[in-house]
Amino acid sequence: MSMSNKDKILSSITHATLCDDCLSNSANVKPRQTVYSICRSLSKASIIKRYEGICEHCHKSKIINQFLNEVKTSGEKLDSLRSVKLNSENTPWYWEGNVQSKVVRYLVLNGYTIHSVADTISRSSGKDIIASKSGSEL
Score class of each variant (00 low, 15 high):
N65E: 00
S4N: 14
A118D: 04
T120I: 02
K85Q: 14
N90F: 02
I114K: 05
C22M: 10
S46H: 06
S12C: 07
D20I: 06
K102L: 07
L42V: 05
V117F: 08
F67N: 15
S12T: 05
D119T: 03
M1Q: 13
E89N: 08
G126F: 04
N28F: 09
S124M: 12
S122G: 04
K44I: 10
I121K: 12
W93P: 07
T91P: 00
S88T: 14
K62F: 01
E56L: 10
A16E: 03
L18V: 00
K85S: 04
D119S: 09
Y51V: 00
S124K: 15
Y112Q: 04
S136R: 02
T73Y: 00
V71N: 03
K72V: 04
A118E: 11
T17E: 14
C22W: 00
S132R: 03
I130N: 12
K44D: 13
Y51A: 10
S12L: 03
S101H: 14
S83C: 15
N98W: 08
L81G: 00
V117G: 13
D79F: 05
V117R: 12
Q100C: 11
I54C: 07
S136K: 13
C55T: 08
D21H: 14
G75E: 00
S26G: 02
P92W: 07
Y51T: 03
L18Y: 03
E137G: 08
R82S: 00
R50P: 03
L23G: 12
Q100I: 13
G75S: 08
Y112I: 15
A16W: 01
S11R: 15
Y112A: 07
A45I: 02
I13G: 10
A131R: 13
W95A: 08
H15K: 01
N110I: 13
E89K: 10
L23I: 01
Q100P: 00
I38V: 09
I129A: 07
T113Y: 01
I114N: 03
D7L: 07
H15P: 12
L107W: 01
S74L: 13
K72I: 11
K62Y: 04
L81H: 03
E56D: 12
N69H: 10
A118F: 12
V117H: 06
L86K: 05
N98A: 01
S41V: 12
S116R: 14
L42I: 06
T34V: 07
L78C: 04
K62E: 04
R123F: 02
S61F: 14
S24Q: 06
L107Q: 08
D7R: 11
V29Y: 00
Y51E: 14
S134Y: 08
G135Y: 05
I38R: 09
T34E: 15
K8Q: 15
I114H: 03
S61T: 06
Q66E: 13
S122H: 07
K6E: 15
A16N: 02
C22T: 06
H57A: 14
I9Y: 09
V84D: 05
Q100T: 15
G126Y: 06
Y36Q: 15
H59K: 14
E70R: 12
V99D: 05
S122W: 05
V84C: 05
A16K: 00
